[in-house]
Amino acid sequence: MRLLLLIDGACESVSDPELADPGLAEAVGVVRTQVRLQKLDFWLRNPDYLADELLTEYEKSGEVPLLELAGAILDSEEPEVRRYPMLRHHFGAYEPLDDALAVLRSAGLVARRRRGTVNRVRQHDYFLLQPGRVVAREVIREAPAFGYYVERARLVVALADGLGGSELKKRQYLQREYAEAVRGERIGSVAVRARVRLEKLRAQAQAKGIRVGEDG
């Protein structure tokens, strides 16, 4: 369900030639490349990394809402109770998607298309089908707790705006814990470091007379 809600929130428009494919006639959106889907899922599954990236964006832009969003995550237990760590693979965070996607595909909610040749697949694209969108909306309505993933997926997509899968991978590699994780082992948390960073940035904002939520 996490992947369905992520694909729903992250998909872009489907082209007319793609809609001409009989299997994609009901497609309402697409997430292009497995790398992009994996990297978006990494931030969704690791709220501590997401919050730390929000702090980086705050330092670049000075937009206080970014600091407040990071604070809302790091002041809570979300980095601990919502964290679903991923393995460090050859090219960064990785988790096999086949099993989860097979369930969505067999239910007619998502379709996958490969680009390339028989011997070399260059790209996987993931299409959200109309029944998938309907199910995503019904789940949120009937089980409001899943709204968490909708809100976080919205943040993740905004953070990744304009970045392709390879660019997202490079950005995530800037995190020491991510880059130095042993291949085949789970990538460690940055929650402690991010919380220290948050308090430093809050103190700096307060010194400048900037109000930051209840801490301002």
Rank of each mutant, 00 (worst) to 15 (best):
70 A>W: 00
121 V>A: 12
11 C>N: 10
190 V>G: 03
39 K>V: 01
78 E>G: 04
98 D>Q: 13
83 R>E: 03
34 Q>F: 05
76 S>I: 07
23 G>L: 01
129 L>Y: 02
207 A>G: 10
20 A>Y: 00
174 L>H: 13
26 E>Y: 04
134 V>D: 03
80 E>Q: 13
151 E>D: 14
11 C>R: 09
88 R>T: 09
42 F>H: 08
191 A>S: 12
216 G>L: 07
10 A>E: 04
91 F>T: 15
171 R>A: 06
185 E>R: 12
19 L>D: 03
124 H>K: 06
81 V>R: 11
12 E>K: 12
129 L>E: 01
215 D>N: 11
154 R>A: 13
15 S>F: 01
155 L>V: 11
203 A>S: 13
107 A>H: 13
165 G>I: 07
89 H>I: 05
74 L>F: 02
79 P>I: 00
125 D>Q: 04
111 A>R: 00
70 A>G: 02
171 R>M: 10
75 D>I: 04
93 A>S: 14
155 L>M: 07
80 E>R: 15
81 V>M: 02
202 R>L: 15
47 P>N: 06
164 G>I: 05
36 R>L: 03
57 E>D: 12
19 L>G: 02
40 L>S: 01
202 R>E: 15
20 A>Q: 06
7 I>N: 00
90 H>S: 13
197 R>S: 04
75 D>M: 03
161 D>P: 05
44 L>Y: 00
17 P>H: 05
90 H>K: 13
214 E>D: 15
43 W>A: 09
133 R>P: 05
148 Y>C: 06
136 A>M: 05
38 Q>N: 11
26 E>I: 04
212 V>K: 07
131 P>R: 04
206 Q>I: 11
51 A>S: 01
47 P>G: 03
98 D>H: 11
188 G>Y: 06
51 A>K: 01
115 R>H: 11
197 R>T: 03
167 E>L: 08
175 Q>G: 09
210 I>V: 15
116 G>A: 03
62 G>I: 04
211 R>K: 15
138 E>H: 10
161 D>V: 08
58 Y>L: 07
68 E>A: 10
187 I>T: 10
208 K>R: 15
94 Y>A: 05
141 R>W: 07
122 R>I: 00
130 Q>P: 02
44 L>F: 02
60 K>M: 10
69 L>N: 06
111 A>N: 00
103 V>R: 12
45 R>A: 05
184 G>Y: 06
149 Y>Q: 08
38 Q>M: 13
33 T>P: 03
84 Y>T: 10
22 P>M: 01
135 V>S: 09
8 D>V: 05
155 L>G: 02
92 G>D: 08
125 D>P: 03
56 T>L: 13
197 R>H: 10
21 D>K: 01
47 P>K: 03
57 E>N: 08
20 A>T: 04
72 A>V: 07
70 A>F: 03
216 G>C: 06
126 Y>H: 12
